[in-house]
């Protein structure tokens, strides 16, 4: 009898697309062949991990259709199986995998990145959000130096494609056509009242948030935003972002 570690390694290999020969040799032949009994476990692993990915990336699944998605998911599961037992956290590498998938449309990886950001926003750990009121009393000299940290549930997804329009057109009950000629979109994703929400950012807002996320002070970020979008009306733009629960209290 080989050690348990070896048995589990051989079983794992059979589950993830490798040969089942080694493990089959240690399984009792009882009315069904060992390979048939092993196949029940292999099917379960493929089906349930594929379902977990389809649940996290429903728009990608809709865009490419069930058969293509299942085929891609199976390849992905064998190449990048989960490393954590928390399935809500499985699939971080799926967008990059899709970038190399045969005949996948060029916008598909970025749509997947948006869905991954929504998934993270929904499940991220709870942290107190910044109360904009706390800032109103800040002395003027401290205002420009203020550093704001995004919450773990907040993300920005930038794309050369209109990913939010594509995402919206693929929500249940929608069947619109999207013209890629409308250009790229930068999307803010955050959590509000337990829901994962998103909206498109203007060019100035996007730069402002990205600069803040990179650890720059509010004054510097505001300056970069105005450079990117000279017509930006800064006060309401900053105030609106502060009112959205995207920053951490500490």
């Amino acid at each position: 009898m080989p050690p348990l570690r070896e048995i589990q390694r051989d079983f794992s290999q059979a589950l993830l697309g490798g040969s089942d020969q080694a493990i089959a040799g240690r399984v009792l032949h009882d009315r069904l062949a060992p390979a048939q009994r092993i196949q029940i476990y292999r099917n379960h692993v493929r089906i349930t991990l594929g379902e977990a990915l389809a649940t996290t990336f429903p728009v990608v699944a809709r865009l490419v259709g069930g058969a293509y998605f299942a085929s891609a998911a199976r390849r992905f599961i064998e190449r990048e199986p989960p490393r954590s037992p928390v399935l809500a956290e499985y699939g971080a590498a799926f967008p990059d995998f899709l970038a190399g998938a045969p005949n996948a449309p060029a916008y598909l990886p970025d749509v997947a990145r948006l869905e991954w950001a929504l998934n993270l926003a929904y499940h991220a750990e709870d942290r107190p959000a910044l109360e904009p009121r706390q800032l109103a009393s800040l002395p003027p000299e401290a205002q420009a130096a203020l550093r704001l940290k995004p919450l773990p549930s907040t993300a920005i997804v930038s794309s050369a494609f209109p990913i939010l329009a594509i995402w919206q057109a693929n929500q249940p009950g929608r069947a619109d056509t999207v013209d890629l000629a409308q250009g790229g979109q930068t999307v803010l994703v955050w959590r509000e009242d337990g829901d994962a929400v998103c909206r498109a950012l203007g060019p100035g807002e996007a730069v402002l948030l990205q600069a803040l996320g990179a650890g720059r002070g509010l004054g510097e970020a505001a300056s970069a935003a105005v450079q990117a979008e000279p017509g930006l009306d800064l006060p309401p733009a900053i105030a609106a972002l502060l009112a959205t629960a995207v920053f951490s209290a500490s």
Partner: peptide, 17 residues
């Protein structure tokens, strides 16, 4: 591999599909 996507991506039109 199922090589050809056959979902709603037909609804995404434009130059760079």
């Amino acid at each position: 591999w199922i090589y050809v996507p056959a979902g709603t991506c037909a609804k995404i039109v434009g130059a760079s599909t």
